[in-house]
Simulated scan of single mutants.
Amino acid sequence: MKRFIKIVLSISFIFYLLALVVLLFLGTRGYVWTDLTLTEYIKRSSNFVPLKTISTYIKAIFSGSMNMDIPIKNLVGNFIMFLPMGIYLPYFIKRINKVSVFSIAIIILLFVIEVIQLVTKRGSFDIDDFILNMFGALIGFGIWKVKVVQKLLK
């Protein structure tokens, strides 16, 4: 049974990584500033102010000033997108078994992803995406640390 679970988790991790690559780098992101220099692109498509985007979306939800799909997909999607990583990383990399080590690993991973999106002009650097992704990953890590899950997956 343990071997079966390991095979299922390995296959699902590969599909998860492929889905992340498509969502983060290959999908249409709506940015039409590809003719800008990299510096101009970074200025126009980056948000370094924490909670700016999140508060805009929350206000839009309550005021109805925006199509509800946009804030819900962005807030919930960014939160859920890295939740599985909180389970996969400590499962496959045994050294990532403490919240501090996990947090450092996820911060580095998210930072690299955000920078790649900027440099390739396939997305933006949004600190709020970073925050939501981080919280999602930490919730996933919390799920990983539950004794029932540990017993099932180890």
Rank of each mutant, 00 (worst) to 15 (best):
K154S: 13
N78W: 02
S124G: 15
K121G: 09
K94D: 04
F102Q: 00
G140T: 00
T39A: 15
S55I: 14
A137N: 00
I80G: 02
V32A: 12
K98D: 09
I61N: 05
K151E: 13
L89H: 03
I127M: 06
Y31V: 13
L17G: 07
V32N: 12
K73I: 12
F111G: 15
I87W: 02
I108W: 08
S100R: 13
L83W: 03
L36P: 03
V101N: 14
V146F: 09
F15I: 13
V99Q: 06
S65Y: 05
I80P: 03
S55H: 09
M66V: 10
G142I: 00
I107M: 09
A60M: 05
L23W: 07
I42W: 10
I96W: 05
K121M: 15
K98Q: 10
F48V: 11
I107D: 01
L83Q: 01
Y41P: 09
S65M: 06
I139S: 11
K147G: 07
V149C: 03
K2N: 14
V101H: 12
I96M: 12
K59Q: 13
G140V: 01
Y16G: 00
N133S: 08
I104P: 05
V101Y: 12
I143G: 05
G123H: 10
F13H: 05
E40L: 07
V146D: 03
F141C: 00
K94H: 07
G77W: 03
I7P: 01
I96C: 08
V99S: 11
G64D: 08
F82L: 13
L83R: 02
L24N: 13
R3V: 11
I93Y: 07
I80Q: 01
F4Q: 13
K145D: 08
S63C: 06
G30N: 04
S65Q: 11
Y41W: 06
L20D: 05
Y31T: 10
T28E: 14
T28G: 15
N47I: 10
L153D: 02
Y91C: 01
Y31P: 04
V149N: 04
Y57R: 10
L9M: 15
I70P: 08
F141V: 01
I87N: 00
I127A: 04
G77C: 02
